[in-house]
Every structure is written in C-alpha cells, then in structure tokens.
Amino acid sequence: MKLALFASGTGSNARSLVRAAREQRLEAEFVLIVCDRPRAPVLAFAEEEGIPVFAFSPKEYENKAAFETEIVKELYAKGVERIVLAGYMRLIGDTLLTEYGGRMINVHPSLLPAFPGKDAIRQAWDAGVKVTGVTVHYVDEGMDTGSIIAQEPLYVKETDSFETLTAGIQAVEHRLYPEIVQQWIARPLKTVQTNTEGANHS
C-alpha cells in the first residue's frame, strides 16, 4: 500500500515507520513525506531514505485550502492511498478531509481525550498524573478528537523525570504505531479497535 507521511519536526516516529517498512514489518511503501516546515530535520532523513518530499511554508499561501489543494495534487501524483501523521503540527482542513477523510491516522503522546494538542507530555507531567500513554486515532477536523483506534498506558514512576517520561512515551510510540499502522492497512478502513492492555510498569 502506498502511504504518505506528514511531519513537522525531527521525524522520530517517521523514522520508526520507515524502518518498519524497510524491515517488512509494514506491508507498505512510503512514497511521499509532506512537511509544513521547509527546514525541519525530518527532511534530511527523507533525503537519506530517498523518499520524495513536498515541503511548503503555509504563510506563502492565501489560506489552508490553497496549500491543501497543492498537497492533494502531490498525493494523487504519487498514488497515495492513505496518510499517516507523525508529528504534523497543523490541523487538517476540509480540502484534505474531503479527499482522504477516514484514510488518515495520527499518533498522540497522551491517553486522549486527556492532554490534546501541543506539548502533551509536558501537560501530563505538569498535571502530576500517575498514568499517561499513547493514542493512535483517526484524523478529523478537531484537535486530536478523531475516533480512537488504539491506546497504551504508561505508568509514571516516582523516579521519573520529564526527560525519562518523554523517552518512555517515545519508546511506546515507536513500537505501537508501526504495529497499528500494519493492522490498519490490513483491515477495513472504519474498524476501530481500542487496546488498553500492555501497560508498562517498568
């Protein structure tokens, strides 16, 4: 299956997904990386991997519909069937949802609906929660409001720092997301699975 990755930053989740595809744990090919920050580190990774890129600066477009129209053209040109968001820090608009609604998923570093939006790990840390985790969900027009596909909790240890919690969350993301993407591309589009097992007590 031909997939596109949407990313805005360093691309750690993008790297784990591309690695899973290269190791044939993911029956998919990433044929395009879409990035809204032309200098983001993920673009250097895309070049290393030989993955085509569409990088754009939103401020150069009249509105969201204008740049999403360009994105859709790029997706169609590459034959993209589904979209995987991996650190894309921009709400999806009507133009993309019209073309790919129900065919986009995202990973978020909290147990949604808790701590949506930016800096979710920091939000959880500052709130002093004892359990946080990772959510994989469908993308809709809201801020991390799409139907949940899978969740995995992570217990916050007394010895944790913000840095060790961040590393723990990222480790869960990098393992869980490729697994769920593989399940997602192997099953009907609208099937939603919630998995709250497998909490990490270590």
Score class of each variant (00 low, 15 high):
2 K>T: 14
4 A>K: 01
6 F>N: 04
13 N>G: 07
16 S>I: 12
16 S>N: 09
17 L>S: 10
20 A>Q: 07
21 A>Y: 11
21 A>L: 13
21 A>M: 12
22 R>C: 15
27 E>P: 15
28 A>L: 05
28 A>V: 07
29 E>M: 12
29 E>C: 08
31 V>F: 02
31 V>E: 01
32 L>C: 07
35 C>R: 02
37 R>D: 15
38 P>S: 04
40 A>D: 07
44 A>V: 12
45 F>W: 02
47 E>T: 09
47 E>S: 12
50 G>V: 08
51 I>E: 06
53 V>E: 10
55 A>V: 11
57 S>N: 11
57 S>Y: 10
60 E>R: 13
61 Y>Q: 04
63 N>A: 05
69 T>L: 13
70 E>P: 01
70 E>N: 03
72 V>E: 14
72 V>G: 06
74 E>W: 15
74 E>H: 10
74 E>F: 09
75 L>D: 04
84 V>T: 09
84 V>P: 00
87 G>H: 09
88 Y>E: 03
89 M>N: 01
89 M>C: 13
92 I>L: 13
93 G>L: 01
95 T>G: 00
99 E>P: 10
100 Y>K: 05
101 G>R: 07
107 V>D: 10
109 P>I: 10
111 L>C: 12
115 F>N: 03
116 P>C: 08
117 G>Y: 07
120 A>C: 08
131 V>K: 10
132 T>A: 01
134 V>S: 08
138 Y>V: 08
140 D>F: 07
140 D>P: 00
140 D>W: 05
141 E>R: 15
143 M>R: 01
145 T>Q: 11
146 G>I: 05
152 E>Q: 15
152 E>C: 15
153 P>G: 13
156 V>W: 02
162 F>H: 08
162 F>Y: 09
165 L>W: 04
168 G>W: 03
170 Q>T: 11
171 A>F: 05
176 L>N: 01
178 P>Y: 00
181 V>N: 00
184 W>L: 05
186 A>W: 06
188 P>G: 04
188 P>H: 04
189 L>I: 03
190 K>Y: 10
190 K>N: 06
190 K>P: 02
190 K>V: 06
191 T>D: 11
191 T>W: 09
193 Q>A: 12
195 N>H: 14
196 T>A: 03
197 E>R: 11
199 A>R: 14
200 N>W: 14
200 N>C: 15
